[in-house]
Simulated assay, not measured.
Amino acid sequence: MTLIASPSQTSNHKQEKILQGAMQVFFRDGYAGTSMDRVAIEAGVSKQTIYSYFHDKEGLFKALIEQITISRFQTLFDSEELTGDPEGLLRQVAEAYLLKVSDDHQYLSLLRVVIAESSRFPEMAKLYYHTVIQRGRQLLGKYFDDRPELGIQDSEATAQIFFGTLVSFVVSQELMYGKEIMPLSSQKLVDSLVYLILRNKSI
């Protein structure tokens, strides 16, 4: 018996083909250098097919950001709140983030494009910030607010420091050749970061 793909399966397959093709072009040519014609050739579909799924280039890149980032951090940020003992939770979040991105060439390529094009296309950078940093900061800030025994005076700023440090580490070590010039182990970073945040914890 021959199985016939349903319309929804065919649609999902075409959308995935477009996103995979777009990924190759965006990462190779940058945002400004990417055209729908080039994406169509790379994806093996017509340009009209791309427009039927994605309104324009910005919509296509937005979908790509969401696919690459959300799939990687869904297990971290999918719940309504963070739970667990402070030291264990902070280590888990930091180590999970660094493990997911440090050797992830797709994610690092996306981050490189976002940084390179952020001045010309600020909405693109804002989307990345919202998808990765803002969600994590909100959850961690709420976690700090619910635990006054930690002695954290400004939960929002501390959560920003936490996630900002992780992103900065990835950028400096992975994108700016810090691993070659002045390497720093991720474990040392996590140890120091957790210590700095929890050092005022009440006993």
Rank of each mutant, 00 (worst) to 15 (best):
Y107T: 11
G84N: 04
A125S: 06
P7K: 13
R137T: 12
L90S: 06
R72P: 08
G33R: 09
V170R: 04
Q160S: 13
D29V: 10
Y128W: 03
E16P: 05
Y129R: 07
Q9A: 12
Q24N: 05
I152F: 10
E58K: 01
S119Q: 11
E58A: 04
R135G: 01
G164T: 02
V25P: 02
L193K: 03
L140G: 06
I152V: 08
L60Q: 02
E66S: 09
E149D: 12
Q48D: 08
S11W: 06
N200R: 15
G59M: 03
H55E: 14
G30V: 04
H130W: 11
R199T: 11
K17T: 09
Y97V: 15
F61N: 00
I133V: 08
S52G: 08
L193D: 02
D154Q: 07
A94F: 01
T2H: 12
S172E: 15
Y31Q: 00
E180F: 06
G178S: 12
Y53D: 03
F121N: 00
V39D: 03
E58D: 11
M182I: 11
S46C: 11
E156Y: 04
V25R: 04
L127H: 04
K179N: 13
L3V: 13
D37S: 13
S192A: 15
V101I: 09
G84S: 05
V45W: 09
V101K: 01
S119A: 10
R112A: 09
S102T: 14
Q160C: 12
R28K: 15
L108M: 01
Q160N: 12
T165A: 04
K179E: 11
L64T: 05
P148H: 14
R91K: 07
I70Y: 04
T2E: 07
E80A: 03
L111K: 10
L139C: 10
S6K: 14
A32E: 10
Q106A: 12
L110W: 00
Y128V: 00
Y129M: 07
L127I: 06
K100M: 09
E95D: 12
I18E: 05
Q134P: 00
I4N: 07
R135L: 03
K57C: 04
Y107Q: 15
S79H: 14
I181H: 09
L111V: 07
K201R: 13
V132L: 11
S79I: 07
G88Y: 13
S46G: 15
F162C: 10
S8N: 10
S119K: 10
D146W: 13
T2I: 13
S52K: 09
T10A: 12
L98I: 09
S102D: 13
E156Q: 13
K142N: 09
R135T: 05
K14G: 02
S8G: 05
G84Q: 05
Q138P: 02
E87I: 11
L98G: 04
T69I: 08
L98S: 03
E42I: 07
F169R: 14
Q92R: 14
R28S: 14
F163T: 00
D154W: 02
L196N: 09
K201Q: 10
P183T: 04
L99E: 06
Y53I: 04
D56E: 08
